[in-house]
């Protein structure tokens, strides 16, 4: 069996285990390449269907093409698409882009990491536990409506990979989060022989990571093999740059690359041109311990 098949088959097994054990299950979809592969794997696991909702945390700063792609695929795959947002922070301008012009030291200035905390981490936690309103795509009209369902999700499927950065390399396939979405890295449950943490205390939830064993190269090779549609932002449109990892527009810089399609990206990854540059290097919020702290507190 080939390596890509092995990775695919293990991910499928994990997805089926999560669907079996978590009645309130959802999958986070960031529109990026990883979670899009994850969505494809769900269709593999459930024979063309996606039997749980997809949740997207919309910071409002996403590149517009990402949102258009999200809604197009949702309609095509007939997905239960749920969108959550930190409406208040956006309304009161408590974001990095909105306070960027303020002078250094201004108490109202919001740093990149704080902005991630508000627009992503808090929005995610409150969308998952049902405290903040969720919007749901109406597949008939193509419009988003307030979702009457306010029940918390207990199982959350996430596209994190161990090779992305340090803290992700210590995740389990099934990783518990406590009532405040906190991750206790020092005391994680044992996980072996494909027996996962599927029992959980009320109020807590479990993050499920079917892509843990995949690398960036595997993701692109799989996209190629399966012909999975991806957003064009990953490819050079003629100006010699492309995005390697997708986030919010103000905190995301493209990398220098002339890769125009999946084959060229794979060639580029293999050539070693990007070998020594971290995948998330274009993500300006990652800083020294910024990401690790955010992740402990519930960021994906």
């Amino acid at each position: 069996m080939e390596l890509l098949d092995q990775l695919e088959q293990q991910s499928v097994y994990i997805l089926r285990e999560s669907f079996r054990h978590f009645e309130r299950l959802c999958m986070l979809w960031s529109i990026g390449k990883d979670s899009t592969v994850l969505l494809w794997l769900a269709r593999k696991a459930f024979f063309g269907h996606v039997p749980f909702p997809l949740v997207h945390i919309d910071t409002s700063y996403k590149i517009p093409e990402m949102i258009a792609y999200r809604d197009r695929l949702s309609m095509e795959y007939k997905l239960t698409m749920i969108v959550g947002q930190n409406v208040k922070a956006l309304e009161f301008g408590k974001t990095f882009p909105a306070t960027q012009a303020l002078p250094e030291g201004d108490p109202n200035k919001i740093s990149r990491v704080e902005c991630c905390g508000l627009l992503k981490k808090d929005a995610l936690a409150n969308t998952l536990n049902g405290t903040w309103p969720r919007k749901k795509l109406n597949l008939k009209t193509g419009q988003y409506e307030i979702d009457p369902d306010k029940q918390p999700y207990h199982g959350v499927i996430v596209g994190a990979r161990a090779d992305e950065e340090g803290s992700r390399s210590k995740e389990r396939y099934f990783s518990p989060r406590d009532k405040n979405s906190l991750w206790d890295i020092g005391d994680q449950p044992p996980e072996f022989w494909n027996q996962f943490k599927t029992d959980f205390a009320p109020g807590t939830h479990v993050r499920i990571h079917p892509l843990l064993d995949w690398t960036e190269l595997h993701i692109w090779e799989y996209i190629k093999r399966e012909k999975i549609p991806t957003v064009s932002l990953y490819y050079d449109q003629g100006n010699g740059t492309r995005y390697r990892s997708l986030g919010c527009a103000p905190c995301q810089s493209p990398i220098k690359s002339t890769a125009k399609n999946v084959d060229e990206i794979i060639a580029e990854l293999k050539s070693g041109k990007l070998k020594n540059i971290a995948e998330r290097s274009g993500r300006l919020q990652d800083g020294k311990h910024g990401l690790e702290e955010l992740r402990r507190e519930g960021y994906m």
């Binding site: 161990a162 090779d163 950065e165 340090g166 803290s167 390399s169 210590k170 890295i185 020092g186 994680q188 690398t215 311990h289 690790e292």
Partner: peptide, 18 residues
């Protein structure tokens, strides 16, 4: 990778490298 481990100087959890 994790500050806990840096503080204590011991490996707490399994880390993966390639």
């Amino acid at each position: 990778a994790l500050s806990d481990e840096q503080d204590q100087g011991i490996t707490i959890d399994t880390a993966r490298s390639f």
